[in-house]
Design a protein around this nucleic acid. Sequence first.
DNA 1: CTGTTAGCGCATTCAA
DNA 2: TTGAATGCGCTAACAG
Lengths: 338, 338
Amino acid sequence: MSVTIRDVAKRAGVSIATVSRVLNQSKPVSESLRKKIMKAVEETGYRPNAVARSLIHKRTGLVGVIIPEIYNPYFSGLVQGIESIAQQSGYSVMLAVSGKSVEQELEMLQIFQTRQMEGVILASSRWSREHRRWFTQAPMPCVIIGRPAGSLSSVCTAIIDNRKAAYEAVRYLIQLGHRRIGMIRGPKWDRASGEERYAGYRDALREADIPPRRQWVAVREEFQVIDGYQGMKQIAAAKEKPTAVFCACDRIAVGAMQYLEEQGVSVPGDLSIVGFDDEELARIVTPSLTTVRHQPFEMGVQAATMLTEQMLNQQKMGKEAVLPHQLVVRNSTAPPSE
Amino acid sequence: MSVTIRDVAKRAGVSIATVSRVLNQSKPVSESLRKKIMKAVEETGYRPNAVARSLIHKRTGLVGVIIPEIYNPYFSGLVQGIESIAQQSGYSVMLAVSGKSVEQELEMLQIFQTRQMEGVILASSRWSREHRRWFTQAPMPCVIIGRPAGSLSSVCTAIIDNRKAAYEAVRYLIQLGHRRIGMIRGPKWDRASGEERYAGYRDALREADIPPRRQWVAVREEFQVIDGYQGMKQIAAAKEKPTAVFCACDRIAVGAMQYLEEQGVSVPGDLSIVGFDDEELARIVTPSLTTVRHQPFEMGVQAATMLTEQMLNQQKMGKEAVLPHQLVVRNSTAPPSE
DNA sequence: CTGTTAGCGCATTCAA
DNA sequence: TTGAATGCGCTAACAG
């Protein structure tokens, strides 16, 4: 079916080695043969088979990327950043969406290995012992996004300081005068939004000697608008109400504001809301959202840069890139009314 | 470096053929050898090399996907739909982001060919003669999303009826009583938002015997919020003002609303706004946006389904899938105030 | 300069 | 059942 180097060689009346030489410019070839061969290539529409090439060079030029979902500006930002660097370094990206399933992720990692990826980037939320094992034995350089690699010394990570960022956001609320501060947090299995940001929230409370209140903390499994709505509903059911709520992400914050509007609670008049991520939504919603900005695209760029660096040097290393974040104050926060 | 089938064979004291047989279960192998081999596989951590396999079987199990950008819910929805079907059919996805450049897209298509993709999905906005040529000569099945394939009979397409959808949206405005209706359209090179939706807008005007007014049509090159802002600014500069503006996409609509709010023009009191896409934004913005809903995820699913069907049958075909759309009326539209 | 040959890692003939 | 040998498409080392 497909035209091979042999067909071209036959058509040009030369050996396949010569064809290979002109195509790769690896050795000088007489002008006359070169022309004949180029003509044959043209006529047959021959394209060298990258699979065969990979087999010889032991280089696929492939980078595997796993994300839990793509329909989320954080992850699509990551992917775009990764893709841009990969492309510009001559690598192609294999994208796999895990749907947050640990089993699927592990299967994808296996596939990446059999498919001879030269590098792997994982932006996962869940984590397991098998993950750890896979990364320790992985033959290719790896970068993990959004979660510290722990004691994995041969894996790079690109993260932000979620704990500190959350701490700063809540400290800001405290500085405004708030003492009754709730949080809608992510699930416990999500390191960033479930653990770290919650820890930062607790840090800020502790620093201000504010005892935490269980009823003011809602745990959500997802990061959709509806989760914010439900989370706020739950918190609002407490006898005593908070005057501010810190949300694990912008969508949750938006959902919380929707519930409050429905209930006739004014934001920020009666209750202040802080989000996290600063996605486009944050500027558009009314009132515009005070939130923590970070740059998923830049994170992807950093991750891919660390990866290509390792791939070039042909060796794994354990660098950690901590990207900046920044509290962006908009109109969803104000001093408490009392 | 990497452990090969040879290493396993040596360790188990058998031939590589036998190892291959137990791993693929292609021929019966005595239980004793099977055990020995499995043990050797376990101990060495051997993973079969998919590249070598591909070379033999002439099947890579790879699908190439090109999108102009991913940081846009329309395209990320597409990708997620495609990915889910591909995964479930045992294919892996190679993602390439073209940044809207024709040259880059063509280069990616070449790469896809040399990399032996078994199928290709293109969701592009721009189009060129070279595109056309590539798809006619392409050896693998292809699906084009968002643009009719024209006379390409061997390429599937997944589209919505942009013209009709736009027509219906503008007709709705006319039915509300509007006669002075503007449009912020996409660039001419974007078939969907630049040509078809504009054509639908003209269709509706024509049907109602409303002469089109040049000053009420703004052309934008991008689809960001800022484009809507600028586009609305341009239209607002006309001596006579329109009472409604149809926007080529939701982000543009949001930008338009932002400009209007700045200027103290009330929506929908003084001016009605209609968007297109019904992305999450549309429900969240204030006032919530009347817009045309369609389903990028479903579109991706359809595209990938048509592709896998062709890949299974090992032959190209020219089906066209037209996905449904639907006008969603929210709070950004009302009868004109006069 | 050019052609012949030996693999890359694996599946699959063909013999044994 | 098992092993040796062939070849997928291509590059690179070796002769000429």
